[in-house]
Design a protein around this nucleic acid. Structure first.
Lengths: 161, 161
DNA sequence: GTAGTTGCAAACGATTTGCATTTAT
DNA sequence: ATAAATGCAAATCGTTTGCAACTAC
């Protein structure tokens, strides 16, 4: 299953005349087998042991390439950074506003919803639509518990840095 | 109408015990009256003439605050940057992949769609959902025309960086 | 063979931060 | 009165870039 996805992605690259280098294969495989929505730095830390020559610059270049090719998507990271996700089967993301955790949501209605918003967007704007992203923000289980423990009362005041 | 929105937003701030400074009012008013989805730098250029002491740092701080308060939303800007948008009435965005233009889409189905995705996300992830974002990517009118002019044939090859 | 890719280090630029001063409440 | 916000400049950090060496096709 992971291999299927890898082959399919590699074929997509071949079709677009993009060279398949060991680095690209390694990064692609990592993304397919890890759905932890890694930031660039995380990918680097994980893969450096396997390919000591691998550079950050190459990871940046490769990810940008994959995004253009449509096989990887970017997820905004409240803190300005970007996280990446292999886009095998369509899904959207729930993002924790407190800890930044990203959870995949596989919604049976997603294709329907995606078509609705793309159709409406095209109608209103005249854009030629190619893709869409949905993110839902909130508090994950752990952070709900953590924050509840910190202020057991219903205090409203909130630190704004 | 613009004033209503401003008053409503100011009350939101008051309710949360956030001080209303001239800078905050100025920035808020700018966002309410300009739906050009400005980047920080743009806001700075526009407002500096009106308040020469206004600093970039204050704009950054203020916008982050507004986002936390839920009266302004961030729009990811392919080039890593962030653009801001006053969130008066619910809408989502069509973003041009070529020139970065952002167009508001006011979809009558948006509330329905938002509820669907928030409900499903909560069910699958256990998150306590607070908000959601939808972005649709594609090519705007002008860029469609521009690109069609550049390669009148159906050439496939594409520069990647 | 050759255009495309890598890796390094340097450059870049957007955003954040520390701190003294000012200000809203 | 005082806790919070501003503005400045410096620091930070993620990302991009120029270029020589390397490699997939």
């Amino acid at each position: 299953m992971a291999d299927e996805a890898l082959d399919k992605a590699l074929n997509t690259l071949r079709d677009k005349h993009v060279r398949i280098t060991p680095q690209r294969k390694l990064i692609l495989n990592y993304l397919i087998t890890h759905h932890n929505h890694p930031a660039v730095e995380v990918i680097y830390q994980e893969l450096a042991p396997q390919m000591s020559s691998l550079s950050l610059a190459t990871i940046y270049n490769t990810l940008n390439l994959f995004v253009e090719m449509g096989i990887v998507i970017e997820i905004p990271n409240e803190n300005g950074g970007i996280r990446y996700d292999f886009f095998g089967s369509p899904h959207y993301h729930a993002i924790c506003e407190n800890c930044g955790k990203v959870t995949d949501i596989f919604d049976p209605n997603f294709p329907k919803i995606e078509e609705m918003i793309q159709t409406e967007a095209a109608r209103q704007s005249g854009y030629k639509i190619t893709s869409s992203h949905i993110e839902v923000y909130g508090l994950c289980d752990e952070c709900q518990a953590k924050l509840a423990a910190q202020k057991p009362d219903g205090a409203a005041a909130e630190a704004h840095v």
